[in-house]
Design a protein around this nucleic acid. Structure first.
Length: 587
RNA sequence: GCGCCCGUAGCUCAGAUGGAUAGAGUGUUGGCCUCCGAAGCCAAAGGUCAGAGGUUCGACUCCUCUCGGGCGCGCCA
């Protein structure tokens, strides 16, 4: 409908340009907006106000000319000029009613479009280190990334969802060493667990599994393990916890030899399996789990650095190889290869991003937690240096969600091991509430997540409010048989003109918005727009429900109303699905 | 110190690429079930859009500054 009105105005403007000889370099974009108030019609256009200045004419006068030049349209009942010069369009009722038929015939595909024209999009989200279970901090990125991906797919993009597995690097060595130390403790060795080690109970569980698998085979004495290791940091702040853990890693690798890999892989596989299971349970599907180790095995990092070298974007200094990030908008140059010859995380990561482009994706999206936003300029710099357009990569930031239990803030930390895991959260409040709560606020907005509210099966809870609307419609349709009434969809669709009540009009208008909302939410990466919309739609339905009876004796009206609420049910279900929330038939 | 995000009703947040009298939920107060599920509906009250300038026919929205909150500024990942 928007584009229809846009075309009408376009035609009017072209006609006017010829007759009135406007001196315009270029026409401003014709913007059609939904009106806020009913008396302003259904759609409004501000073109007259925009043209007033360049043409040096009064906006209302221009509006009158435009309206006069407007071609006739069967879909528009009335056009008015209002306020300073807005052109308001009133949509013909019959044109509005057509939405009901459209929803019912398109079913679960209603709201989908081909806007994206099959353009390939690579979206990476969560990508948490496999050093421990996902905690609630990852939840928002998961729910948000999944919703953005699903929205993009719904509007016709070809979406590839990927998880980057950081299965190489120091953090993983710390994990492997932590597992081994817990294993040694199980075998009776006495020592202080390193401050910087992973202290969670899941590490002990993996250690127990290791013990089951290998018995005492990997047993070494604490004395050997801690030999020549710099002392750990104390309460007083003396010692060095980083040097301490690094020393332990070196000893572990030396003492275990080839067996080190076994410990390492056991920890990795165990945790990764847990993460995959957790995300699958949360309704997330990935097309690919991309391993950092495989990247290194394929010499992809060397390949990437070679490309930068060839282009002259690197230099050596103090034994390290640097990337000239400052030439591409970053505030510092960045190390690619350390003095000790090892690649930095950054080097591997840009090599990874290079593969995204080399694999042919036209658009690349990274979903980051707010704590990583400082990392963005350097990745963007690398993309540019590698010869790609910075427009092809989009970074989406999710701010932290602070958990509350009622009024009390829930504390969490990965390292101490005393955190709330995503799994615990899902079990406590349920997947539906969890998915919905995480995306109902704008991604860049800091949010408070109240566990008590999410759990409450009451009117306070927006998820239940929307789901209840869906269940209620199912319930009404279930009443048909009991009342010995029949549903005649064909009859209903032919009698839609009977839907004259203001509540019905409002509901129909709301239905016509759905496709626009999905499109807008997808293109702006803002699933919260859909969440807000669904709340509004549910509200319009509940209001209608309270004001009118659907199962009336008169067959024409009854079937028309049933068609309307069936369409509503379909849109609720489609919308919820895009957000990863179920649409229950009963609650 | 520099950079990014945020500051809208008591609380939690929308405000749709600048548009017409600033919107929801929750909370408060008062109503609505002999009738399709009251997990619902209706009504009232509640705002100098952090503050000050500026651009514009028009600013919650754009620009500058100030104040306040979050996060980040490693040869860590």
């Amino acid at each position: 409908m928007k584009s229809h009105i846009q075309q009408l105005i376009q035609q009017a403007l072209i006609a006017l340009q010829q007759t009135d000889a406007w001196q315009l370099d270029n026409l401003p974009q014709i913007q059609i907006d939904r009106t806020r108030a009913k008396e302003h019609g259904d759609y409004a256009c501000n073109i007259a106000l925009l043209l007033a200045k360049p043409l040096a004419k009064k906006p209302r006068e221009l509006a009158e000319n435009i309206v006069k030049a407007l071609p006739a349209s069967e879909q528009i009942s009335r056009v008015e000029i209002a306020g300073p010069g807005f052109i308001n369009f009133f949509i013909q009722e019959a044109a509005q009613l057509a939405i009901v038929q459209q929803v019912l015939s398109q079913g679960e595909n209603f709201g989908h479009s081909t806007l994206g024209a099959g353009k390939t999009v690579h979206i990476e989200f969560v990508s948490s280190n496999p050093t421990g279970p996902l905690h609630v901090g990852h939840g928002r990125g998961a729910a948000y990334g999944a919703a953005v991906a699903d929205l993009l797919a719904a509007v016709g993009f070809k979406v590839h969802r990927e998880y980057y597995v950081n299965d190489a690097g120091r953090q993983m060595d710390i994990l492997a060493t932590s597992v081994w130390l817990r294993y040694l403790a199980l075998l009776g060795e006495q020592f202080d667990f390193p401050r910087n080690g992973y202290k969670g109970d899941y590490v002990k569980a993996i250690a127990a599994k290791l013990n089951q698998q290998v018995g005492k085979l990997l047993h070494k004495s604490a004395q050997q393990v801690f030999a020549n290791v710099p002392s750990d940091e104390t309460e007083a702040g003396q010692g060095d916890k980083e040097a301490h853990i690094d020393g332990l890693i070196v000893n572990a690798k030396r003492l275990l030899g080839n067996d080190y890999r076994q410990v390492f892989d056991l920890g990795l596989q165990d945790i990764l399996a847990d993460i995959r299971e957790d995300l699958a349970g949360f309704g997330l599907i990935y097309q690919q789990w991309f391993s950092e180790r495989s990247l290194k095995e394929q010499k992809a990092v060397e390949h990437c650095i070679a490309k930068l070298n060839e282009a002259g974007h690197t230099y050596s200094q103090e034994g390290a190889l640097w990337f000239r990030a400052t030439n591409f908008g970053d505030d510092k140059d960045r190390v690619l290869v350390r003095e000790n010859g090892e690649f930095t995380y950054f080097a591997a990561d840009i090599a990874y991003h290079l593969t995204k482009f080399e694999r042919g994706y036209e658009q690349v999206i990274d979903v980051f937690g707010a704590d990583h936003h400082g990392y963005i300029p350097r990745v963007k710099a690398a993309i540019k240096a590698l010869g790609y357009n910075a427009e092809q990569i989009k970074f989406l930031i999710v701010q932290f969600a602070v958990l509350y239990r009622g009024a009390e803030r829930v504390q969490m930390s990965t390292r101490s091991g005393s955190f709330v895991t995503l799994r615990e959260l899902r079990e406590e409040v349920g997947n539906d509430a969890c998915r919905f709560f995480y995306v109902m606020r704008k991604n860049e907005q800091h949010m408070d997540f109240d566990l008590e509210l999410a759990k409450s099966q009451s009117s306070d809870n927006p998820v239940y409010y929307i789901q209840y609307a869906h269940a209620r419609i199912c319930s009404v349709l279930g009443q048909l048989a009991e009342k010995h009434l029949l549903l005649d969809e064909t009859l209903g669709l032919s009698q839609l003109q009977l839907l004259k009540e203001s509540h019905e009009q409002a509901l129909i208008t709301q239905l016509t918005r759905f496709s626009e909302v999905v499109e807008q939410a997808a293109l702006s990466y803002e699933p919260h727009q859909l969440a807000q919309y669904l709340r509004d739609l549910a509200n319009d339905f509940h209001t209608y429900y309270n004001a009118h009876q659907f199962l009336v004796a008169e067959a024409n009206l009854r079937n028309a109303r049933l068609c309307l609420i069936m369409a509503t049910r379909q849109v609720l279900a489609n919308g919820l699905k895009l957000l990863g929330v179920s649409a229950p038939r009963m609650m």
